[in-house]
């Protein structure tokens, strides 16, 4: 036996200390980004929140490590796995996927939605549960009817998919169009909402 083996802490001891750090960091206003994952019918989602509100929802296919690294670079490296701040978001998402919720009430932090893309992303909740719109219609909603391609980019870079409903935006020919979570996830969300896709 050597010193390092003899002094190895158990995983449960470190987990308890981590939980204590999450709380202390939040109390001291040092928890700039809290995150957790959530298992859903469309796969594992990463949820991240600042003290302002939910700032990022990410699909596993986006690369969760990559997404967290982007958050550290764009927002703050003070990032901790700290589920408590995301309890309400997780509950609302569970309700949504169970068919018991049509819109989300949690506060959002829009700091990743900038420029025209941000304007488009802010207008997306106008497309209500169970309905769809075309990229051209959303361009008109955002006040730039010619900016159809830019709307496509805005949907593809939506930092808050599912909660901000870019999945309700389809191509003018009725095809699904792309989706940050993959077309299967887009079809699943539209089916869940009972929308004619």
């Amino acid at each position: 036996m050597n010193l390092t083996d003899l002094t190895a802490p158990g995983p449960h001891e470190l987990a308890a200390l981590h939980a204590r750090l999450e709380q202390a960091a939040a109390d001291a206003d040092l928890l700039d980004v809290a995150y957790r994952t959530l298992d859903t019918p469309v796969g594992t989602l990463l949820l991240a929140a600042t003290p302002v509100g939910l700032v990022r929802v990410a699909y596993e296919r986006e690369g969760l490590d990559e997404v967290l690294a982007q958050l550290a670079a764009r927002l703050s490296p003070r990032v901790l796995r700290a589920p408590a701040r995301l309890d309400d978001t997780a509950r609302e998402l569970d309700e949504y996927f169970a068919g018991r919720r049509r819109e989300f009430d949690v506060p959002l932090d829009r700091s990743l939605s900038t420029g025209f893309r941000g304007e488009v992303q802010r207008s997306l909740p106008l497309v209500g549960f169970g309905t769809t719109a075309t990229y051209a219609q959303v361009a008109a909603l955002a006040g730039r009817p010619a900016a159809v391609r830019a709307v496509g980019t805005a949907c593809a870079t939506n930092p808050l998919p599912v909660v901000v409903p870019c999945h309700r935006v389809l191509r003018s020919d009725g095809a699904l169009g792309g989706y940050v979570g993959g077309t299967d996830a887009k079809a699943a969300l539209l089916a869940l909402e009972g929308a004619a896709a």
Partner: peptide, 23 residues
């Protein structure tokens, strides 16, 4: 922009060492 490691990874990587030292 610097590519600073997440603080979560700092805790995961060094948490056990710091606990050994404190103990």
């Amino acid at each position: 922009m610097s590519t600073r490691q997440l603080f979560e990874d700092v805790v995961a990587t060094h948490g056990a060492t710091v606990l050994r030292v404190c103990r």
